[in-house]
Amino acid sequence: MNCDMKRSISLYSYQDEYYDGKLDLEGCLRETAKTGATGVELLAEQMIKKFPLPIETEEFREQWFGWLEKYHLTPSCYDAFLENRIFDNRTLCLGEQINMMKRDIRLASLLGFHNLRTLVSTPMEVIEGSLAYAQQMDVRIGLEVHAPFSLNSGWADGYMEMIHRTGTKYFGFIPDMGIFCRNIPDVVRDKARRMGASEACIRIVDDSYAERLAKGFTKIKYDLNLGKANMEYRMANGMKEMMDAIEQANGNDADRWYANASFTYSWSDPQDIIDNIDYIFHTHAKFYNMHDDYTETAVAIPEVIEAFKKAGYKGFLSSEYEGGEHLRDIGVNSIEQVRRHQEALRAAMEK
């Protein structure tokens, strides 16, 4: 069955090749085009040297749009970071944070983006204070729904209330497919083994994750103190019991690392996509390891794509490779990983 979804790539996926000097910004765009993707997601602070100054120049923008034309790419999403701790002695005040958000909205617009990703750490009042400017610049602000957060939760309800209260069409959600993990990624497990984790403790962690999946994850609550909210989430999902079992099995630092890492992943019902489709305009198609048969053993790609189809989603699914950080000690091939993932997305979309 054909659908109107489009494929994009977040240049975050190519970070290892970029930092190793194998790819420059144009090279990342060239590799994106080779996969058949038609959209590009940009982390300007990561990929544009001396950010944000070059974006202000006509010379850079002419080069940027020239590349997009050359490789037949559309700007899909601009990833912003609200750096509210730029001073050692204080956090930026509300007005300063809103001005920083407005700066990022303007930069996104200058580069042709109509969607901007902001992080879950962005205070709601900063988003609300930026909505009028977002509408003026025709750039929608999307809050990334990254594990352990989830749609259809008390955490998301506060943002939904703000959407309904303001009537805005310029704020919504950007789900990250890391919230649809049926298993802990195999690259994480293999890294734990290389670090010295025992098979007994790996089994304890994997069984604990499977138990969370079977029972249903207790969802994280909204709290401005994300550290507190995250710890409460972990404890509600069996962290103490799992850590106690690891200690009883004489676990070491690698075992404890794997146990803590397991809470980086979570499972949400793909029905959440269907229920919230009116507020979703971009998606991070997170993945961790694509095998040579085009399967991803953690993220439930077919189920999630099917939910997007049922919902009538017409936005981009943007490949976001996050397995490389677990392979740097043995070698990363992001280009091949992204190619495989794009092929898996294409096949699932066209099924």
Rank of each mutant, 00 (worst) to 15 (best):
L73V: 11
T118L: 03
V187L: 07
T91K: 15
C28A: 13
A298D: 05
D104Q: 15
Y222R: 06
S318F: 04
L11T: 14
D329N: 12
L151Q: 02
V188H: 00
P185G: 05
T218P: 07
G167A: 05
S10P: 08
I335H: 09
P123W: 06
G331I: 09
E306P: 07
I179P: 03
L53M: 12
I274E: 13
W64A: 02
F316Y: 15
R7I: 15
W267M: 10
F287S: 01
L43F: 14
R256F: 13
E350V: 08
K34L: 12
G196Q: 04
N84D: 14
I55T: 04
I202Q: 06
Y209I: 02
D223R: 09
S8Y: 03
E69V: 07
D20C: 10
T122Q: 04
N225D: 15
S318T: 10
F51A: 08
P54S: 04
W67D: 07
N2H: 13
D20N: 15
S130G: 05
I174K: 08
G154E: 14
S10K: 06
A134T: 02
R339A: 12
I9V: 15
L226C: 09
G27C: 11
L43V: 07
R340W: 08
S13A: 13
S319K: 06
A80D: 02
G312E: 03
F308T: 01
M124R: 13
N289D: 15
F113L: 03
D329P: 06
A108E: 00
C3V: 13
F65Q: 12
E62G: 10
L116Y: 00
F263N: 01
T57E: 14
T166G: 07
G154Q: 12
N89T: 07
I273K: 01
A254Q: 05
R189M: 11
R193I: 11
Y12T: 04
K102P: 04
Y170P: 03
M5A: 10
F263C: 02
Y294P: 06
G323W: 01
T32P: 05
R189S: 08
